[in-house]
């Protein structure tokens, strides 16, 4: 969902920026020797652009912060006791305290025994659901609210060495 939405925004934004550059680049002729006049018109546009950018940024900023799966944010959002799964990673495998997980809120306690890994959860269609880092000495608490039963895969999302790309396993949500 987020991916598709932001991906479309990325494409749309790129097209708009290209359009503006095209418009300005092709409006270089004929020369207007009264630069002061051109500059003033430009600055008027700049002021409007500034406020527009500010408005868009504030909205995106707020949406983004609310959508963070941070423990602080998620603890406020999730109702009821989450099911806890301990995740331990090492080059190049995942160790899960449970591979059958109930529907509803789940808390993954993610850590690593050696280097940095990335704990990425993918759904049955190969879409990235959520992720967190998996780091030695620290525990990342990642909350997920599973609404759909089925098989999920874990893929490593932090480069950890030669077999990084095959560091994967799966679990089932029932």
């Amino acid at each position: 969902m987020t991916q598709l939405f932001v991906g479309s925004a990325a494409m749309l934004g790129a097209l708009i920026i290209m359009g503006i550059f095209w418009k300005v680049g092709t409006s270089s002729m004929p020369r207007d020797d009264d630069y002061k006049h051109v500059a003033e018109a430009g600055y008027a546009i700049r002021r409007r652009y500034f406020w527009g950018l500010l408005a868009v940024s504030v909205v995106l900023f707020i949406i983004g912060v609310i959508a963070f799966p941070y423990p602080k944010v998620m603890e406020a959002k999730i109702k009821g006791e989450p099911f806890v799964v301990k995740i331990n990673s090492k080059q190049f495998q995942w160790d899960l305290s449970a591979t059958e997980i109930p529907l509803g809120p789940v808390r993954f306690d993610v850590t690593s025994q050696d280097v940095n890994h990335g704990f990425g959860i993918y759904d049955g269609q190969g879409r990235l659901v959520t992720q967190s880092q998996s780091m030695p000495d620290y525990v990342n608490r990642l909350y997920v609210n599973f609404a759909k039963p089925g098989k999920y895969k874990i893929w490593c999302l932090e480069y950890c060495g030669v077999a990084h790309h095959i560091m994967t396993t799966e679990f089932e949500v029932k």
Partner: peptide
């Protein structure tokens, strides 16, 4: 130069989206 600035603007815009919605894009 002009096209370079354009790529900077577009790439920068994408970078901001990545930061704003990082959980969906980090290390992808």
């Amino acid at each position: 130069m002009f096209l370079g600035l354009m790529s900077w603007a577009i790439g920068g815009f994408w970078a901001v989206l990545d930061a704003g919605f990082n959980n969906a894009f980090h290390n992808t």
